[in-house]
Amino acid sequence: MSSYIDLKYINELSSRLGQFKKKGDYLFNFRCPHCGDSKKSKTKARAYFYQVKNDMFFKCHNCGEGQSLSNFLKFIDPKKYESYLLERYKGSAPSTPAPKFDFKPTKFEDIDYFDKLTKISELEDSHPAKVYITKRMIPESFWSKLYICNKFMSFVNEVKPNTFPHTKGEHPRLIIPFYGVDGKPFAFQGRAFGKEQPKYLTVKIDSDKQKVYGLDRVNLQQHIHIVEGPIDSMFIDNCLAAGGADLTLRVPPDNVTYIFDNEPRNKEIIKRMYDVVSKDYNLVVWPEDMRHKDVNDMIMAGLTKNEIKDIISTNTHSKLSALTKLNYYKKC
Protein backbone atom coordinates (compact mmCIF):
# COMPACT_ATOMS: atom_id res chain seq x y z
CA MET A 1 0.00 0.00 0.00
CA SER A 2 2.83 2.42 0.87
CA SER A 3 4.43 1.96 -2.56
CA TYR A 4 1.11 2.67 -4.26
CA ILE A 5 0.70 5.94 -2.35
CA ASP A 6 4.29 7.00 -3.06
CA LEU A 7 3.85 6.36 -6.77
CA LYS A 8 0.56 8.23 -6.74
CA TYR A 9 2.22 11.37 -5.37
CA ILE A 10 5.22 11.03 -7.66
CA ASN A 11 2.83 10.91 -10.60
CA GLU A 12 1.10 14.07 -9.35
CA LEU A 13 4.47 15.84 -9.13
CA SER A 14 5.77 14.68 -12.51
CA SER A 15 4.41 17.62 -14.53
CA ARG A 16 6.32 20.02 -12.26
CA LEU A 17 9.68 18.27 -12.63
CA GLY A 18 11.73 19.11 -15.71
CA GLN A 19 12.75 16.29 -18.08
CA PHE A 20 10.75 13.82 -15.99
CA LYS A 21 11.05 10.25 -17.27
CA LYS A 22 10.16 6.84 -15.95
CA LYS A 23 13.22 4.59 -16.08
CA GLY A 24 11.71 1.56 -14.36
CA ASP A 25 8.78 0.47 -12.20
CA TYR A 26 10.28 2.23 -9.19
CA LEU A 27 12.90 4.46 -10.78
CA PHE A 28 12.30 7.99 -12.11
CA ASN A 29 14.71 10.56 -13.52
CA PHE A 30 14.30 14.36 -13.68
CA ARG A 31 16.06 17.71 -13.21
CA CYS A 32 16.85 18.54 -9.60
CA PRO A 33 14.65 21.31 -8.15
CA HIS A 34 17.19 21.90 -5.37
CA CYS A 35 20.20 22.85 -7.51
CA GLY A 36 18.52 23.34 -10.87
CA ASP A 37 20.86 20.73 -12.39
CA SER A 38 23.09 21.89 -15.26
CA LYS A 39 22.93 25.58 -16.14
CA LYS A 40 24.64 24.92 -19.49
CA SER A 41 22.41 22.08 -20.65
CA LYS A 42 18.64 22.17 -20.29
CA THR A 43 18.43 18.46 -21.09
CA LYS A 44 20.65 17.13 -18.30
CA ALA A 45 18.69 15.41 -15.55
CA ARG A 46 20.58 13.93 -12.61
CA ALA A 47 17.94 13.61 -9.91
CA TYR A 48 16.12 10.37 -9.16
CA PHE A 49 13.29 8.82 -7.20
CA TYR A 50 14.18 5.24 -6.31
CA GLN A 51 12.84 2.52 -4.02
CA VAL A 52 14.33 1.12 -0.81
CA LYS A 53 12.20 -1.74 0.49
CA ASN A 54 8.65 -0.32 0.34
CA ASP A 55 9.48 3.38 0.37
CA MET A 56 10.56 5.90 -2.25
CA PHE A 57 13.49 8.27 -1.81
CA PHE A 58 15.04 11.20 -3.65
CA LYS A 59 18.70 11.64 -4.64
CA CYS A 60 20.48 14.17 -6.85
CA HIS A 61 23.80 13.09 -8.33
CA ASN A 62 24.71 16.70 -9.12
CA CYS A 63 24.36 18.51 -5.78
CA GLY A 64 24.29 15.40 -3.59
CA GLU A 65 20.96 16.22 -1.93
CA GLY A 66 19.19 13.14 -0.61
CA GLN A 67 15.93 12.81 1.30
CA SER A 68 12.81 10.77 1.77
CA LEU A 69 9.88 11.35 -0.54
CA SER A 70 7.95 12.98 2.31
CA ASN A 71 10.70 15.56 2.90
CA PHE A 72 10.96 16.15 -0.83
CA LEU A 73 7.22 16.85 -0.91
CA LYS A 74 7.62 19.19 2.06
CA PHE A 75 10.20 21.15 0.07
CA ILE A 76 8.20 21.24 -3.17
CA ASP A 77 4.63 21.57 -1.93
CA PRO A 78 3.89 21.86 1.83
CA LYS A 79 0.14 21.37 1.33
CA LYS A 80 0.64 18.22 -0.71
CA TYR A 81 3.10 17.09 1.95
CA GLU A 82 0.38 17.31 4.61
CA SER A 83 -2.03 15.33 2.45
CA TYR A 84 0.66 12.75 1.84
CA LEU A 85 1.30 12.29 5.58
CA LEU A 86 -2.38 11.81 6.30
CA GLU A 87 -2.79 9.26 3.55
CA ARG A 88 0.55 7.53 3.94
CA TYR A 89 0.91 7.17 7.67
CA LYS A 90 -2.55 7.19 9.16
CA GLY A 91 -2.76 4.37 11.67
CA SER A 92 0.91 3.42 11.40
CA ALA A 93 4.44 4.70 11.54
CA PRO A 94 6.87 4.77 8.64
CA SER A 95 8.15 1.25 8.06
CA THR A 96 11.55 2.09 6.60
CA PRO A 97 14.20 4.34 8.15
CA ALA A 98 15.93 6.86 5.92
CA PRO A 99 18.89 5.16 4.23
CA LYS A 100 22.47 6.35 4.24
CA PHE A 101 23.33 7.99 0.95
CA ASP A 102 26.69 6.37 0.43
CA PHE A 103 25.85 4.40 -2.70
CA LYS A 104 27.30 4.97 -6.16
CA PRO A 105 25.15 6.81 -8.71
CA THR A 106 22.96 4.60 -10.83
CA LYS A 107 24.39 4.34 -14.32
CA PHE A 108 22.22 4.08 -17.39
CA GLU A 109 24.25 2.74 -20.26
CA ASP A 110 23.83 4.51 -23.57
CA ILE A 111 22.63 2.12 -26.23
CA ASP A 112 24.52 2.14 -29.51
CA TYR A 113 21.66 1.39 -31.86
CA PHE A 114 23.91 1.39 -34.90
CA ASP A 115 26.80 -0.79 -33.73
CA LYS A 116 25.58 -3.72 -35.85
CA LEU A 117 25.47 -1.57 -38.98
CA THR A 118 28.34 -0.63 -41.26
CA LYS A 119 29.38 2.98 -41.67
CA ILE A 120 29.48 4.31 -45.21
CA SER A 121 33.07 5.40 -44.57
CA GLU A 122 34.03 1.74 -44.01
CA LEU A 123 32.60 0.42 -47.30
CA GLU A 124 34.56 -0.38 -50.43
CA ASP A 125 34.26 2.28 -53.12
CA SER A 126 32.46 -0.23 -55.34
CA HIS A 127 29.71 -0.93 -52.79
CA PRO A 128 26.30 0.23 -54.14
CA ALA A 129 25.65 2.35 -51.04
CA LYS A 130 29.05 4.05 -51.35
CA VAL A 131 28.39 4.62 -55.05
CA TYR A 132 25.03 6.19 -54.19
CA ILE A 133 26.56 8.51 -51.58
CA THR A 134 29.31 9.52 -53.98
CA LYS A 135 26.80 10.15 -56.76
CA ARG A 136 24.78 12.40 -54.46
CA MET A 137 28.05 14.24 -53.71
CA ILE A 138 27.45 14.03 -49.96
CA PRO A 139 30.47 15.56 -48.17
CA GLU A 140 32.93 12.95 -46.93
CA SER A 141 32.85 14.51 -43.46
CA PHE A 142 29.37 12.96 -43.01
CA TRP A 143 30.23 9.44 -44.15
CA SER A 144 31.17 8.20 -40.69
CA LYS A 145 27.69 9.10 -39.40
CA LEU A 146 25.78 7.39 -42.20
CA TYR A 147 25.13 3.65 -42.28
CA ILE A 148 24.04 0.89 -44.61
CA CYS A 149 21.28 -1.34 -43.26
CA ASN A 150 20.70 -4.46 -45.35
CA LYS A 151 17.47 -5.47 -43.59
CA PHE A 152 15.74 -2.24 -42.69
CA MET A 153 12.42 -3.62 -41.46
CA SER A 154 14.09 -6.14 -39.17
CA PHE A 155 16.41 -3.44 -37.82
CA VAL A 156 13.48 -1.13 -37.04
CA ASN A 157 11.68 -3.94 -35.23
CA GLU A 158 14.79 -4.54 -33.12
CA VAL A 159 14.91 -0.89 -32.08
CA LYS A 160 11.13 -0.46 -31.76
CA PRO A 161 9.46 -3.88 -31.52
CA ASN A 162 6.34 -4.50 -33.61
CA THR A 163 6.74 -1.36 -35.73
CA PHE A 164 6.27 -3.58 -38.77
CA PRO A 165 3.73 -6.41 -38.35
CA HIS A 166 5.83 -8.50 -40.77
CA THR A 167 9.03 -8.18 -42.76
CA LYS A 168 7.66 -9.22 -46.13
CA GLY A 169 9.28 -6.96 -48.68
CA GLU A 170 12.47 -6.61 -46.63
CA HIS A 171 14.99 -4.28 -48.28
CA PRO A 172 18.16 -2.24 -47.62
CA ARG A 173 18.18 1.47 -46.77
CA LEU A 174 20.61 4.23 -46.01
CA ILE A 175 20.41 5.06 -42.30
CA ILE A 176 20.72 8.72 -41.29
CA PRO A 177 20.79 9.07 -37.47
CA PHE A 178 19.33 12.15 -35.77
CA TYR A 179 21.49 13.28 -32.84
CA GLY A 180 20.43 15.66 -30.07
CA VAL A 181 22.41 18.54 -28.62
CA ASP A 182 23.90 16.00 -26.21
CA GLY A 183 25.24 13.95 -29.11
CA LYS A 184 22.89 11.03 -28.43
CA PRO A 185 20.66 9.58 -31.17
CA PHE A 186 16.91 10.05 -30.71
CA ALA A 187 15.68 9.08 -34.19
CA PHE A 188 16.88 7.85 -37.56
CA GLN A 189 15.75 8.08 -41.15
CA GLY A 190 15.85 5.25 -43.64
CA ARG A 191 16.32 6.36 -47.24
CA ALA A 192 15.30 3.77 -49.84
CA PHE A 193 17.74 2.92 -52.62
CA GLY A 194 15.05 1.48 -54.89
CA LYS A 195 11.37 2.10 -55.54
CA GLU A 196 10.24 1.23 -52.01
CA GLN A 197 7.66 3.56 -50.52
CA PRO A 198 7.78 5.75 -48.65
CA LYS A 199 11.17 6.80 -49.99
CA TYR A 200 12.03 8.37 -46.62
CA LEU A 201 10.90 6.76 -43.38
CA THR A 202 11.81 8.36 -40.06
CA VAL A 203 11.69 6.33 -36.85
CA LYS A 204 11.70 7.97 -33.42
CA ILE A 205 13.71 6.30 -30.68
CA ASP A 206 12.54 8.94 -28.20
CA SER A 207 8.89 9.75 -28.89
CA ASP A 208 9.15 13.04 -26.99
CA LYS A 209 11.63 14.57 -29.44
CA GLN A 210 10.89 16.49 -32.63
CA LYS A 211 12.06 15.01 -35.92
CA VAL A 212 14.87 17.49 -36.43
CA TYR A 213 18.21 16.62 -37.99
CA GLY A 214 21.40 18.54 -37.21
CA LEU A 215 20.88 19.56 -33.58
CA ASP A 216 24.30 18.16 -32.67
CA ARG A 217 26.12 20.62 -34.94
CA VAL A 218 23.94 23.74 -35.13
CA ASN A 219 24.96 26.95 -33.36
CA LEU A 220 21.83 28.68 -32.06
CA GLN A 221 23.76 31.91 -31.58
CA GLN A 222 24.32 32.23 -35.33
CA HIS A 223 21.85 32.57 -38.19
CA ILE A 224 20.04 29.26 -38.71
CA HIS A 225 18.85 27.76 -41.98
CA ILE A 226 16.12 25.13 -42.01
CA VAL A 227 15.57 22.79 -44.96
CA GLU A 228 13.30 19.79 -45.44
CA GLY A 229 15.71 16.88 -45.85
CA PRO A 230 18.85 15.83 -43.92
CA ILE A 231 20.91 15.43 -47.10
CA ASP A 232 20.15 19.01 -48.20
CA SER A 233 21.27 20.29 -44.80
CA MET A 234 24.74 18.82 -45.36
CA PHE A 235 25.49 21.46 -48.00
CA ILE A 236 24.44 24.57 -46.04
CA ASP A 237 26.29 26.04 -43.08
CA ASN A 238 24.54 26.00 -39.69
CA CYS A 239 21.55 24.15 -41.04
CA LEU A 240 18.79 21.97 -39.60
CA ALA A 241 16.41 19.65 -41.43
CA ALA A 242 12.88 19.70 -40.06
CA GLY A 243 10.92 17.88 -42.74
CA GLY A 244 7.27 18.11 -41.75
CA ALA A 245 8.01 18.93 -38.12
CA ASP A 246 6.42 22.01 -36.59
CA LEU A 247 9.78 23.13 -35.29
CA THR A 248 10.03 25.18 -32.11
CA LEU A 249 13.25 27.13 -31.60
CA ARG A 250 13.99 29.57 -28.82
CA VAL A 251 15.60 32.07 -31.15
CA PRO A 252 14.30 35.31 -32.71
CA PRO A 253 12.39 34.64 -35.97
CA ASP A 254 14.60 37.06 -37.90
CA ASN A 255 17.56 34.81 -37.07
CA VAL A 256 16.00 31.87 -38.93
CA THR A 257 15.59 31.27 -42.67
CA TYR A 258 13.37 28.49 -44.00
CA ILE A 259 14.34 26.87 -47.30
CA PHE A 260 11.65 24.63 -48.76
CA ASP A 261 11.96 22.38 -51.79
CA ASN A 262 11.27 24.11 -55.09
CA GLU A 263 7.74 22.78 -55.61
CA PRO A 264 5.37 25.67 -56.43
CA ARG A 265 2.56 23.21 -57.27
CA ASN A 266 2.76 21.36 -53.96
CA LYS A 267 -0.18 22.62 -51.88
CA GLU A 268 1.23 21.31 -48.60
CA ILE A 269 4.58 23.04 -49.09
CA ILE A 270 2.93 26.30 -50.15
CA LYS A 271 0.71 26.15 -47.06
CA ARG A 272 3.75 25.72 -44.84
CA MET A 273 5.54 28.58 -46.57
CA TYR A 274 2.65 30.92 -45.79
CA ASP A 275 2.67 29.67 -42.21
CA VAL A 276 6.39 30.47 -41.87
CA VAL A 277 5.83 34.00 -43.15
CA SER A 278 2.94 34.51 -40.71
CA LYS A 279 5.33 33.72 -37.86
CA ASP A 280 7.82 36.37 -39.08
CA TYR A 281 10.52 33.92 -40.16
CA ASN A 282 12.66 34.60 -43.21
CA LEU A 283 11.72 32.57 -46.27
CA VAL A 284 13.55 31.64 -49.45
CA VAL A 285 11.28 32.00 -52.48
CA TRP A 286 13.08 30.39 -55.40
CA PRO A 287 13.45 32.46 -58.59
CA GLU A 288 11.27 31.58 -61.57
CA ASP A 289 14.22 30.27 -63.58
CA MET A 290 15.21 27.76 -60.88
CA ARG A 291 14.77 24.29 -62.38
CA HIS A 292 16.20 22.18 -59.58
CA LYS A 293 13.96 20.63 -56.93
CA ASP A 294 16.24 20.95 -53.91
CA VAL A 295 19.73 21.86 -52.72
CA ASN A 296 21.19 18.42 -53.40
CA ASP A 297 19.90 18.54 -56.97
CA MET A 298 21.65 21.90 -57.38
CA ILE A 299 24.91 20.41 -56.13
CA MET A 300 24.59 17.46 -58.50
CA ALA A 301 23.88 19.87 -61.36
CA GLY A 302 27.24 21.52 -60.77
CA LEU A 303 26.46 24.49 -58.53
CA THR A 304 28.94 25.11 -55.72
CA LYS A 305 28.08 25.71 -52.06
CA ASN A 306 28.99 29.37 -52.45
CA GLU A 307 26.80 29.77 -55.52
CA ILE A 308 23.87 28.21 -53.68
CA LYS A 309 24.59 30.45 -50.70
CA ASP A 310 24.37 33.50 -52.98
CA ILE A 311 21.09 32.29 -54.51
CA ILE A 312 19.63 31.78 -51.04
CA SER A 313 20.79 35.19 -49.86
CA THR A 314 19.41 36.97 -52.93
CA ASN A 315 16.02 35.27 -52.67
CA THR A 316 15.43 35.51 -48.93
CA HIS A 317 12.39 37.58 -47.96
CA SER A 318 10.23 38.28 -44.93
CA LYS A 319 6.85 39.73 -44.02
CA LEU A 320 5.16 41.72 -46.83
CA SER A 321 8.00 41.13 -49.28
CA ALA A 322 7.79 37.37 -48.68
CA LEU A 323 4.01 37.35 -49.15
CA THR A 324 4.28 39.26 -52.42
CA LYS A 325 6.96 36.93 -53.79
CA LEU A 326 5.09 33.86 -52.59
CA ASN A 327 1.88 34.95 -54.29
CA TYR A 328 3.74 35.09 -57.61
CA TYR A 329 5.69 31.89 -56.94
CA LYS A 330 2.85 29.47 -56.15
CA LYS A 331 1.23 27.52 -58.98
CA CYS A 332 -1.58 25.88 -57.04
Rank of each mutant, 00 (worst) to 15 (best):
residue 283 L to E: 08
residue 120 I to Y: 03
residue 75 F to S: 09
residue 103 F to T: 03
residue 325 K to C: 06
residue 293 K to F: 02
residue 63 C to H: 12
residue 253 P to A: 06
residue 28 F to I: 03
residue 40 K to T: 10
residue 113 Y to L: 12
residue 255 N to F: 02
residue 132 Y to P: 03
residue 285 V to L: 04
residue 252 P to F: 03
residue 113 Y to I: 05
residue 133 I to H: 08
residue 201 L to M: 15
residue 225 H to A: 13
residue 186 F to K: 14
residue 196 E to R: 05
residue 20 F to S: 10
residue 194 G to R: 11
residue 27 L to K: 09
residue 252 P to Y: 05
residue 24 G to H: 08
residue 262 N to W: 09
residue 81 Y to D: 07
residue 151 K to R: 03
residue 250 R to V: 01
residue 48 Y to W: 02
residue 322 A to Y: 09
residue 323 L to T: 07
residue 137 M to R: 13
residue 224 I to A: 02
residue 150 N to K: 10
residue 313 S to K: 15
residue 76 I to M: 14
residue 106 T to Y: 07
residue 58 F to N: 06
residue 61 H to L: 04
residue 104 K to C: 05
residue 151 K to Y: 01
residue 227 V to Q: 01
residue 53 K to G: 00
residue 291 R to V: 12
residue 185 P to H: 03
residue 183 G to P: 02
residue 315 N to P: 06
residue 86 L to H: 04
residue 284 V to C: 12
residue 200 Y to T: 02
residue 309 K to E: 14
residue 13 L to R: 06
residue 59 K to W: 14
residue 151 K to N: 07
residue 84 Y to L: 04
residue 28 F to Y: 13
residue 332 C to R: 04
residue 29 N to C: 08
residue 18 G to V: 11
residue 313 S to D: 15
residue 68 S to I: 05
residue 223 H to S: 00
residue 232 D to L: 03
residue 75 F to I: 07
residue 129 A to D: 06
residue 171 H to L: 05
residue 160 K to H: 01
residue 185 P to I: 06
